[in-house]
Nucleic acid binder design. Sequence first.
DNA 1: AAAATAAAGGATAAAAAACTCTTTTATTAA
DNA 2: TTAATAAAAGAGTTTTTTATCCTTTATTTT
Lengths: 145, 145
Amino acid sequence: MLFSKTCEYAIRACIYIAQQSGEDKKVAIKEIAKGIDSPEHFIAKILQNLSKKGFINSVKGPNGGFYMDKKNMKTTISDIVLLIDGDSLFTKCVLGLKQCSENKPCPLHNQYKHTRKEIIELFRNSKIGQISEQVDLNETFLKLK
Amino acid sequence: MLFSKTCEYAIRACIYIAQQSGEDKKVAIKEIAKGIDSPEHFIAKILQNLSKKGFINSVKGPNGGFYMDKKNMKTTISDIVLLIDGDSLFTKCVLGLKQCSENKPCPLHNQYKHTRKEIIELFRNSKIGQISEQVDLNETFLKLK
DNA sequence: AAAATAAAGGATAAAAAACTCTTTTATTAA
DNA sequence: TTAATAAAAGAGTTTTTTATCCTTTATTTT
Ligand code: FES
Ligand code: FES
């Protein structure tokens, strides 16, 4: 498993919010939970955190909810992963050595470093705004029926 | 994190046993724990499991311990991962959708599938026997200092 | 045969991750 | 200005992962 459950939900939620909302249209927790098929109270906590860190925007009260402004549309998958799971996936030794380095590499280091670089690039190049468009076109999905 | 802690220890332990042991020379739990810098009682449990599944060989009593026969030298990292962590890393959706498929792909599926293939290949092509030789030559390491 | 050794097995404990519930605060609309 | 709404905040529970301890079994050496 690359990501924690929390991180999976966070990414799906961000994409959903980007796709469903606008400055005027907001989406409520309940709708998000349904839209990405996640536990309602759990995603609530995650959204709270994303909001506090400024990754998504929120408004309380009637007609309130979550939305994503232009700036936040540029957030990358990498940004979200770093916020939720930290940089372990990107920097830590795949076999759990205290640190990953070229001097004292683990037996998988030399092959794995290339794959890891690819992973990092992939997530760095994936912007929420652009991804949400694919979902909008029904090319990709955030939950299964 | 790609692997569970259990899986990291299991891989390191297998490589250590392959490198240190032979049909006549066996290594004890204590030495293994030191050699790969893992909790002694925890690695004991893991070795028990690896032994039961036939991934490593063991002998009880004085001068007993763990070793690895010719056949087990051919075990791959992939085999160990499948035993300990199951196939989630290789088959499950990276964003946690109920299933990963081409029909209903998640937003990361199309790029990620190539990376995943690389990961799978990398681990399938890494044989314990061959890896242990690198460690023997001090080219790669199982613990830091 | 007895004592010593080392893994196997089983039960438990601590920590982290996943998930839930209840109360409070901000905002809006009636 | 009151009632309703929806997120924020905080506390709590459950489950899984990580780790430890103790007893039993097998083997070997004395
Ligand atoms: S040292 Fe293990 S991945 Fe770099
Ligand atoms: S559907 Fe998500 S990785 Fe294939």
